[in-house]
Design a protein around this nucleic acid. Structure first.
Lengths: 353, 353
DNA sequence: CTGTTAGCGCGTTCAC
DNA sequence: GTGAACGCGCTAACAG
């Protein structure tokens, strides 16, 4: 039986007052207009009839849905769940619900997915799925809907963001490799259309010279996507066409895992033969073989901050200026996938070829 | 500028027809009522003004939101993302949106989370987060909202479900261990309040005798949760108090990973000293050290089926009877965490103590 | 085929 | 303090 849900009117009739009186009594903001005893009776009746406000009517009237859209490129990527939890935790504390949608920036469904969110009516949007010059976001911003990007950011400085300190992360990695004695390292860089890909690649370029690494441009290989298959492919190219390197700095953990996997297939030990580093410190990478040396980002906290900024935008209206772009600190996590280079035989040979 | 969104009325005025004509022209179901040329003009104008239907008004009028609630116990658990994708893929094909919420069955927030979904108005619910005698689901069912459970099921046979063939999975595992020569295996069973925990434990009990394994009841240890920490704890208990076993059958992959981890801490080789098996074949377990022998469930497909059943319920209204409970076939995946038992020294000793 | 009318449930004026 | 009236944007009945 699909029983009709009890409405304000039902409660009003039960108590013997007018609908608007019930409305006021139920709203904490306007409750003080109502005589306490009446308010109590109303609250009691509402409870007894298990009254649940009708969100559709509320939205239609107030233009607010209390729903925040969250767009993630790939929920199967272990980096995102902690971020999502962070977002959800903050939102639910404030009576908001998260509407989660998977969709990669380039996919045909992407615009449709965001449009579906807009059509459904969302008060704000958290975007993890975007490219540097994203067009989809524009349509949302133009509708006057507050947007915060997480992990990545747009070139548009007006769009709020919470990102990680990519530059420091790459520097920490390089310093670590330097200390171990490496001098010739390959970079499997991410797609340059994505802010993290570009930021990490830029940092690699910026720091490797200063730290005394070989600055050969051929040491950089660009991945077309941030997944394991691309990691394998790029590592294969490195093995086939680059001489004398002793370490691979991958733009993220998935690329790194792919690289490790390929090394094993080719019979190259890691870290014995070649060291590999990742970025993100995804859950579980500490249990891999070998456990991955990587950069830890504060995933959960990133999610929380993004949600907090969005709530601020929702309330204040005025962007809190310097709070618009938050950059979270990162931390180097040294595990088993990095070690001293083995003898450096190949490196010597390389100078000859 | 928060520009007012264009409404049916705006389009109507632009074209010079009545609102309801526009409404009919825009709805594919009723478009045939309208003269084609007029319909074309309307569609064109709607497009030009970038008209987006107001979901709140639609819902208020039709009592349907085109939103499906999806409740997951832990989005960080890699088992769920593929399921979620399956659900989303099917839903979006049919114009529905998924509203995802994390919440564990026992947590204080659980009832609140489900209530929030109900309050927001959902047309249906997919629940992965539930116990066998779940109370939260009742309230949803009583509201007349169709519910399908995934992975787990309720004791209530009226609630549709899509689950995996737990019994066969455990049997395949035991047969595999038998073939390797094991005869005394420990079961780290999941919480019996959850259907999968009970089904897998029951299957273990049912099959181990028939296959010639020791049927000592002390060989079963019950975990309080399905996570790695519990896996470690239970494996520790096994090592400390059970003599002569050569393998551990864990109720799921996370427990298995925890068990492997503890074995390593205690200096016991896996699979050299003790074999370990999981259940689910989570992403990445093939990259662990050692790669996990486990039972593969069709996560993505499970999600799809659940969504399809829900859509059926939404349309037909009548539960399609035998389609109410779907059990998906499973597959044994043999990897590196299982091997022949080593010598069976301890097993002999055990008979003496 | 198209216009008219009514009302979904709620918040918000404005009166009293 | 409380009631009355209105309208948010849309669809569904009923006319024509």
């Amino acid at each position: 039986m699909t029983r009709r849900r009890t409405t304000l009117k039902d409660v009003a009739e039960a108590v013997g007052v007018h609908v608007s009186t019930v409305s006021r009594a139920l709203n904490p903001e306007t409750r003080h207009f109502i005589r306490p005893e009446v308010a109590a009776t109303i609250l009691d009746a509402a409870n007894r009839l298990s009254y649940k406000p009708n969100a559709a009517a509320y939205s239609l009237r107030t233009k607010r849905t209390r729903v925040i859209g969250v767009v993630i490129p790939d929920i199967a990527n272990p980096v995102f769940p902690p971020i999502i939890r962070g977002i959800e935790d903050v939102l639910s504390e404030h009576g908001y619900l998260a509407m989660l949608v998977n969709s990669e920036p380039r996919s045909p469904r992407h615009a449709a997915a965001v449009a579906a969110l807009q059509a459904h009516g969302i008060d704000g949007l958290v975007m993890a799925s975007l490219e540097r010059n994203d067009r989809t976001i524009r349509s949302v911003v133009e509708d006057g809907i507050p947007v915060v990007t997480v992990n990545r950011r747009t070139e548009n400085p007006d769009v709020a963001s919470v990102t990680n300190d990519e530059g420091s992360g790459i520097r920490l990695i390089l310093e670590h490799l330097k200390e171990l004695g490496h001098s010739r390292v390959v970079n499997i860089a991410g797609p340059q259309s994505i802010s993290t890909g570009k930021a990490r690649f830029d940092a690699f370029e910026r720091h490797r010279g200063g730290l005394g690494f070989d600055t050969d441009p051929d040491l950089v290989i660009f991945a077309d996507a941030l997944n394991e298959a691309e990691g394998e492919r790029c590592a294969g190219i490195a093995l086939d066409s680059i001489e004398g390197f002793s370490a691979i700095v991958a733009a993220n953990d998935q690329l790194a895992i792919g690289a490790v996997s390929l090394l094993r297939q080719r019979g190259v030990a890691c870290p014995g033969g070649i060291s590999v580093t990742g970025f993100n410190d995804m859950p579980m990478v500490d249990r891999f073989d070998p456990p991955l040396t990587t950069v830890r980002v504060q995933q959960y906290e990133v999610g929380r901050r993004a949600a907090e900024i969005l709530l601020g935008l929702l309330q204040g209206g005025e962007p809190t200026r310097d709070g618009l772009h938050v950059v979270m600190p990162v931390e180097l996590i040294v595990r088993g996938s990095t070690a001293r280079p083995a003898g450096r035989r190949k490196a010597r040979l390389a100078t000859g070829g």
